[in-house]
Design a binder for these strands. Structure first.
Length: 530
RNA sequence: GCCCCGGUAGCUCAGUUGGCAGAGCAGCGGACUCUUAAUCCGUGGGUCGCAGGUUCGAAUCCUGCCCGGGGCACCA
């Protein structure tokens, strides 16, 4: 896996040869890192797409050398830009029409390496085998690569060597992107998904806003926060765990629909569905309830899948998930009753513990409160069965301190979650706007915290005050963007859909040998002296 | 925190019952003017994750540790 490079003098040969080439380039007076402004003829993929139009014309391209096939007086290279690869045909006598063949013999054949950035100019043509190519007449080094880029050779999609190790892929994501085209595509899809959501919300008249990341009081979710400190005010601050309470304040302020793509931070474990920082979409719309929000959510996700992927059907692992069909709708307690045959609210504490044990909840007696146990039971026996998009409505009130009481049952809240492929994708409420009720819920949270629930929400006085000025009835929605991207791209680790997932820090010399720059400073006659 | 799997050349990996540490690609030298995993000839390259132990002898067996991956738990 990761090797140690403790001995700088034992520089791997591929690096030594590149440093040596760099030294020679400098001696020759060739700037290996020139400042340039290149007028590219276009993207390689586009040029190749209508190659008939380009054939016989001069083109200028820039990119990285990804392959090299030296055949004596002719060399083929593959040049890669963001869009694709183009073959370069470098003929000695085309590149060097005069007697001086140095540029070809030394520069092209010896001093250029795979990974170097170059630009070329020449005629677009097809080789005998029909491969779109450029007959190179001019070639400029744009940037020398000192480390071998692990570009695997490839034939018909089959890779012969490449960057596969997940640790190195995440740690050196730039290499992952460079080497693995599908990873580059994946993050484009992520952006398309986010853009599609933004477009959908904008077109419905909702306002994108930015609220603070540094909070003096954190809230809006059950989670432990990251704690930091502001020197200027000698103040403890928290990185936000949600932006809910600020967005609601904005509706108090008169906006009727706001949303934010919120980078949230939760001080919790790291695994394939949890990164310490992640992206959440939150949306709040005045004068609406959670039934309306359910319809809106369903329509939005369906539209986003269609926009970003061109289909509403996605493959996730072994399942085909269809966002296009009408989503299932169930109720939390009814679903539990169907599975267990019991109304969990009527169970005694000991009966509830017994049930929890039976379905595989470990150490339920250690959980802070009945509702946590009920939640676990639900997670064990109901959630894993929900593969197709499913709304779960009406959660017990203890689980939802910011949601409005159910209009028909005061022990429930008007809340739904969307479960897809067995995990939670969305969470939404008819938002609580009764300041007296909200005050009481915060009190319960305060009590829960005192009893050891580390994730209980802190009492936010200012939020209550704001609500006391009058908060419009509203519906709110939260969507885990990373999870949505996972679902839509068939990825099973959150690290795959976050460009730079958090990694345990590691000294670079443990995964990358140091470059022997001293060789560049050596006087040119040093070798002769020896 | 627990369980399973892994760590061998720059990259991807093989390594038999414990018996001289290997291949392909990349590198270096050479040949080659339509190749595309170019080909051919030659060649350098290793703290086998770390530390102990068993053994005449350990990449291989044992113990501990580090790192990673997967699973469980934790995480609405």
């Amino acid at each position: 896996m990761i090797r140690k490079f403790m001995f700088p003098e034992e520089t791997p040969a591929p690096i030594l040869s590149r440093v040596e080439a760099l030294r020679e380039l400098k001696e020759l007076g060739i700037n290996p890192y020139p400042a340039v402004n290149i007028e590219k003829s276009g993207d390689i993929a586009q040029i190749k797409e209508n190659f008939e139009k380009w054939e016989g014309k001069r083109v200028i391209l820039a990119g990285r050398i990804t392959a090299r096939r030296i055949m004596g007086k002719t060399t083929f290279m593959d040049l890669m830009d963001e869009s694709g690869k183009m073959q370069l045909y470098i003929n000695r006598d085309v590149l060097c029409p005069t007697e001086d063949k140095f540029l070809y013999n030394r520069f092209v054949k010896k001093l250029l390496d795979i990974g170097d950035f170059i630009s070329v100019e020449g005629e677009a043509f097809r080789t005998k085998t029909g491969e779109p190519s450029v007959k190179v007449e001019k070639i400029i080094l744009l940037a020398k690569a000192l480390r071998p880029v692990p570009l695997g050779k490839e034939k018909e999609g089959q890779k012969f060597s490449a960057l596969r190790d997940p640790e190195l892929r995440y740690r050196q994501r730039y290499l992952d992107l460079l080497v693995n085209k599908e990873v580059r595509e994946l993050f484009k899809t992520r952006t398309r998904i986010i853009n599609a959501i933004r477009q959908y919300l904008d077109s419905h008249g909702y306002l994108e806003v930015e609220t603070p990341i540094l909070h003096t009081v954190y809230g809006g979710a059950h989670a432990r926060p990251f704690v930091t400190h502001l020197n200027a005010l000698d103040l403890t601050l928290y990185l936000r765990i949600a932006d809910e309470l600020h967005l609601k304040r904005l509706l108090i302020g008169g906006y009727e629909g706001v949303y934010e793509f919120s980078r949230d931070f939760r001080n919790e474990g790291i695994d394939r569905t949890h990164n310490p920082e992640f992206t959440m979409l939150e949306l709040y719309v005045a004068y609406k309830d959670y039934y309306w929000m359910a319809d809106f959510t369903e329509a939005m996700i369906r539209n986003v899948a269609q926009q970003a992927l061109g289909t509403t059907q996605v493959t996730y692992g072994e399942h085909t998930i269809d966002f296009g069909k009408q989503w299932h709708r169930i109720r939390f307690l009814e679903a539990l009753k169907e599975e267990t045959g019991k109304d969990v609210r009527n169970l005694s504490d000991s009966q509830l513990l017994e049930l929890a044990e039976k379905v595989g909840v470990e150490n339920p007696e250690k959980l802070p409160g009945r509702f946590k146990i009920i939640e676990k039971i639900f997670g064990k026996i109901v959630e894993p069965q929900l593969l197709q998009p499913t709304f779960v409505f009406d959660f017990p009130i203890e689980m939802s301190p910011l949601a409005k009481r159910h209009r028909e049952d005061p022990t429930l809240t008007e809340r739904f979650e969307v479960i897809v492929a067995g995990f939670e994708l969305c969470n939404a409420y008819t938002e609580l706007n009764d300041p007296y009720d909200q005050r009481q819920r915060f009190e319960w949270q305060r009590k829960a915290k005192a009893e050891g629930d580390e994730e209980a929400m802190p009492y936010d006085e200012d939020f209550i005050v704001a609500m006391e000025y009058g908060m419009p009835p509203m519906a709110g929605l939260g969507v885990g963007i990373d999870r949505l991207v996972m679902l839509l791209t068939n990825q099973h680790a959150i690290q795959e859909v976050i460009l730079f997932p958090l990694m345990r820090p590691k000294p670079v010399e443990e995964y990358a040998p140091s470059i022997p720059y001293h060789l560049l400073e050596e006087p040119t006659d040093a070798k002769d002296a020896k």
